[in-house]
Design a protein around this nucleic acid. Structure first.
Lengths: 199, 199, 199, 199
DNA sequence: TAATAATCGAGACGGTACGTCAAGTCTTCCG
DNA sequence: CGGAAGACTTGACGTACCGTCTCGATTATTA
């Protein structure tokens, strides 16, 4: 299953190089944005050869993808406390807060932009970033429905589209800030105003 | 007020060239998508020199912007009949239907992508495409509030973010189709299930 | 013979425009050299439309040609005093002195350069600048031969090629200055050291 | 001292590419002349990317320079037999004969033309083509003076200017052919009629 | 202790598009 | 009709970035 399970001959992959590439990508993206993010510069900045980059990633977008997920995966663990609704709200708040940090917002925006003309990247973005959170959210909202004896007046999938849609709308179209009160408004309008806005 | 009001000296701008460029842009975009849309090819396809393109548009994205707005402005006139809610719903349906046509969907997606690293283009996209519809929607939803004696339980701006956000979410993130029943779901979940889904 | 002999209908050619073009050409050439000499700039600098330039000159080189001859024709009248040898020497000195003035040297060099890939210009340069002086020189050197009872040990054509060749050699290849003592050396080595170097 | 002495890191320069560029340049120049010599066509003709050309040469003229010297350096070795005067005459004849071959004449003329508005190229032309022959010629003519007990009536530098000047005069101004009898006339008129015209 | 094998940095390469520039032509209106 | 203004086609320019390639040098496993 794991390539490294069996010891292979030859020089092993340099972990230093892998890390330096992702770090350089993140740093360059934060500094110059997507148009100033060239593979040559990533390589130079990371003290790595371009060859090494293309040996491990199929193209620039894949590097960007890895750099993004490496940086964000830690920060988006599912919230563990409270009612199902509270945990859903907390999850949305976490995503919003993450997207306010330039270090995550910039690469995410860049990824969405790049994925518009790169189906593989689009799939990767969905599978590795969107899907997890969506699955968790669906589970939470289903639980809400189960817990509520006389049912709820929302469909989980629709609610998720609405709430995250609004978030991404601000991110991609209007470029506005995602502050907590605004996120609460969105949640109040969709899952009801009962919960506490705290994380 | 109007530039053409005063006769300016010199040869006038060729309307043929302007139109051919926009038409070629639209056609090439539909055929090959954004990555296959080069200025050289637009020029060749339009029977126009590259020079002429750069004389009137600062870059490729600006051409695309014009091509898009020229093609869509006609199709998105505000609906005139029905109650305020019905008209709002009709408007959303129109946008959704427009975004299902590849001829509009493709350039729009390309524009959103390009605007992520082009502030001027982003501003233009907001001003020339988003703003109009948003203003109209706000007006309609305000009217709904006024017409309803005991108030409504939604804020216009939030509703608009939610509904259009969900639309763009599907467009940009999941790539899913925007069918009428889905749009109705979104509207039912935000402005209430009272209205007829027809245009 | 002369176009202006018969009165033609319509507005007559603007002498102001013609003069301004030649003047602008000369001035721009002196300031920026040949690469910085564009028709657009000549037109702008002369307050004349490009159209007007192309109405009266077939191409840029022709304008340059006119600008050059207009500026130099006056300064190269054949010398009238002294023996034939003295007058030949004086003529050579005059050409050398002219070619030391940047205002004549620069356009001349530019013309020779341009004429290397423009046969018409090359012909014009020969006919309108070189030929006159050459004919005069041949006449003078023939006269020297006639005046000298026991003949001379040079062929006029060869001498002219040698002397003017050396001048142009410095002009075009080494870029050196053409001072009077040097010119005297050339003349001494070809037509003998008898004459006075003064003009 | 030699760049190739120390092995430098990275992929070594492709000798194939270098050679193909020079060959294509020479061939295109012979076919179409200087105005028809574009970098794009050189690249296409040589099966090389434009990028590679600009990596190694600052501009088109520099390529031409290399193509010219590569093609001519072999043909202009200093003559080894005969008296100093004979060897000088032989050298001049060789240059004249070379300049009669279109393959050398054309690029040389083009280079002189281009060097008129490109000081670096002018310097290169002097250093890499003119200087060698001039130094050799000065040495030979000095030797003539030393060998001749009662001195000679010419200054080496002046003689070289005269003879080569006349050659280039025909090349650049009158465009005439450089046949051997003519060259002998020039030599007879400057270093005396004693020698054999053979190479 | 080699031989083998895959990695690494460096950097040249072919390809493709970019945005710019100048030449020379064409089209409008004004004197 | 001549002239100013300026838009137009053509075609080359030089630059930038992508993703591939070829070196010599390095670092592991295998014989």
């Amino acid at each position: 299953m794991d390539k490294r399970g069996v010891a292979r001959p030859g020089r092993p992959r340099s972990e230093r190089a892998r890390h330096a590439v992702l770090e350089a990508t993140r740093s360059l993206l934060t500094d110059k944005g997507l148009p100033g993010l060239t593979v040559d510069e990533i390589a130079a900045h990371a003290g790595v050869s371009k060859n090494t980059i293309y040996r491990w990633w199929p193209n620039k977008a894949a590097v960007l993808m890895d750099a993004f997920t490496a940086a964000t995966s830690i920060k988006l663990e599912a919230p563990a406390e409270g009612t199902a609704v509270q945990r859903f709200r907390a999850q949305v708040h976490r995503v919003a807060r993450l997207m306010n940090e330039p270090e995550a917002r910039r690469p995410f925006i860049a990824l969405v932009a790049a994925s518009q003309h790169d189906p593989e990247l689009a799939a990767a973005l969905r599978d590795r970033f969107v899907a997890d959170r969506r699955a968790a959210a669906v589970a939470l909202l289903d639980q809400v429905a189960r817990e509520n004896p006389n049912g709820v007046n929302f469909k989980p999938d629709v609610v998720i589209d609405l709430v995250y849609g609004a978030l991404y709308y601000r991110l991609l179209i209007t470029g506005q800030h995602l502050d907590a009160p605004y996120v609460d408004c969105l949640l109040d309008a969709t899952v009801g105003p009962e919960a506490i806005s705290s994380d």
